[in-house]
Write a protein that binds this DNA or RNA. Structure first.
Lengths: 141, 141
DNA sequence: TTGAGTGCAAAAGCTTTGCATTCGT
DNA sequence: ACGAATGCAAAGCTTTTGCACTCAA
């Protein structure tokens, strides 16, 4: 990702352009591992040793409100973040909690369901597949 | 739900039959509101004022491991529980976090996706619809 | 009788809040 | 210069853990 693009995106959403913010967002866009806030804190700390956890949490909140990133829920324990905004779904290993992107186009064309309460407006949806990854399956076997 | 059925289910899974456990499970099966652990604690406390939060958490863990209940994730904040085991999906209000069951049969017949990592075994999936319920929509409007 | 289940309390873990300082615009 | 963003610390909230007692089987 080109830095100028990021700076433009921040500008478009009225967000100030700080090194920490750029680092956090860049890390999130460049990975597919769906890191936690602490994962990002550890990662960005390598380049910005003075960064605080607060900044990471605050920044993630701001980016989420701006619609630049999304939160993925795999359990109630801690939040996982996703910088990939293109429509996609997730495959989650029940054992190690790893999240893999599922890009199957057919899943983006589901029709809205029957029998929903009147007045409820659906904005989007996501399919969450559950199972066991190769590594975890061989451990158990 | 008939109490005898519950006692049989507990027995089948090697779970002891206590009043607290029965109360928690019954409450969960009889509601469609997908309550939190604390919601259940408050509810069951009405009949069993001495019940501890620990018992609620412990019991929910046991029931989940036994496969009698499921956890629903709507955010990273706290866990929501579902006593309805028949295959269904969820509709979540982004504003008030309420969860509504979606029983559309067509959603139970999705084919497994393309492009998943080799060795990954899918066990099940769920579709999570997001939107705004009637009440929250009129508040914003 | 025996150990799973319960209750009380303390601890742990993730996230939020308060506040003074810094820095982008 | 103004206010958003940052950093440090403390507080908050949900969940887990430790431990002794109780009760279902």
């Amino acid at each position: 990702m080109i830095t100028e693009t990021i700076q433009q995106r921040f500008k478009d959403h009225g967000l100030k352009n700080t090194p920490q913010r750029t680092a956090i967002y860049t890390a999130l866009v460049e990975t597919t591992s769906h890191p936690t806030a602490d994962d990002l804190y550890q990662l960005v700390s390598q380049d910005y040793p003075m960064i605080s956890q607060n900044t990471v949490y605050y920044t993630l909140g701001v980016l989420q409100k701006a619609g630049l990133i999304r939160e993925v829920n795999v359990g109630h324990d801690r939040a996982r973040y996703d910088g990939n905004l293109s429509p996609h779904h997730h495959l989650i290993c029940t054992s190690c909690q790893s999240i893999v992107d599922v890009m199957d186009e057919r899943l983006n064309e589901l029709s809205f369901p029957n029998g929903i309460p009147s007045g409820f407006t659906i904005t989007d949806y996501q399919v969450e597949f559950r199972g066991y990854c190769k590594a975890c399956r061989s451990k158990t076997a």
